[in-house]
Design a protein around this nucleic acid. Structure first.
Lengths: 123, 123, 123, 123
DNA sequence: GTGGTCTAGACCACC
DNA sequence: GTGGTCTAGACCACA
């Protein structure tokens, strides 16, 4: 996992966690990596991971058990889905559509890009 | 003009200027609002507009004439187009496509959203 | 018995023990559940119960007999009573009264809550 | 302002801010002390105040303006009221009532304590 | 000047 | 071992 410049690292880590959950790699009730573990494996300060986990706990996506660790919360999947979906629909999409209008990119052109997209994917 | 929290204000203003140019509302050689004017009308600190203009000048989209004001540069249109297009293709799109996969949003669904998009543009 | 997030588990267990004593369910000299037993029945780490018992022994509410088990101490009742009473009067009450002032909750309203309280005890 | 041991400092500061708002000392739209200012005046690390402000912003009680500062949010009063009231009704009260039952303190006794409470107030 | 992020390291309570 | 809080200090982007 490599960090791009733009977004805060702790949010990129949150995205990563959500992704694991949405891909069902991490299932409800599973223990997730401890703060220190994840911090070491991502080569990041534990405080940064802590921030991620606090953020996700607030969103009811993960939950803590005293002295034991963090676990995938009951409603993690729907919560993560709704979180990311809202983000997508309200922040990303309108901006995209606006850019398309401005740049004169038709939806058909987008269609083509969609089906040949691998070209643009760095990560 | 309302500022969303996400992007830096000076970049949002830059977007606005580019928009005027791409929509051909501001044409090559036209004088654009002075820093002070624009700052007042947008209720923003003049420093912020100054930063916008410096950014756009660096991109060869506008140019300054000492003591007179800022003007739409010679190649403003292609420059603005290329700037926004690059941004769009390399930064925005890949991220969008990735989100679609993750959220299970098909291209057909996107199509529908595209044609009813006004709903999402309010906020 | 369910553990709320707020208070340390070992203290919640201590509360439980005090409760048994104050309700006279556990009487002076009675043997109380072994650390292991209680840990199993509460689905808790034995270390946690051990901490509870150490805490209560320090408060002279229970006492250990080597190799036999823990017993309700001689002065358990008054000790438990004084412990909880002090806690209540010096820590809980002032905070409550302060909150009432701040939230504009009159004593009459509290009265009503007191007599219909079962509603709030679920969560 | 002195910090008691029990609660996290950043939450005690949050309580303080809520109190100012509930007492209408800080009104909607007012700028509140900057992170650094408050940190210095409370003799606390700026990060701690930052944590408080992030917490309160999430609760929609305060809101940030880039590079300018934090302001009392639109719905600060009702939000703060609801936050503290929920806390009171769901966390504090049930515990109090339970203690009363256990300690054999009648509501009449509480009444008396309420009206002579100054005795118990340290802070 | 403002907020925001990150690191480094310490200490605590808890399991 | 776990999470949680706090400090100290650095650096950045922004107004």
């Amino acid at each position: 996992m490599d960090f791009q410049n733009k977004k805060a690292i702790y949010l990129q880590i949150a995205d990563y966690v959500c992704e694991q959950i949405l891909l069902k790699k991490w299932q409800v009730g599973n223990k997730i990596p401890s703060i220190r573990e994840l911090a070491i494996s991502l080569e990041v300060n534990p405080n940064t991971v802590m921030r991620t986990y606090a953020f996700l706990e607030d969103k009811k996506i993960i939950q803590t058990q005293r002295g034991i660790g963090y676990f995938v919360a009951e409603d993690a999947y729907p919560q993560a889905l709704s979180l990311k979906k809202t983000e997508f629909l309200q922040q990303d999409l309108p901006q995209i559509f606006r850019s398309m209008d401005l740049l004169g990119i038709s939806f058909e052109a987008l269609n083509e890009l969609y089906h040949t997209r691998k070209t643009y994917e760095k990560e």
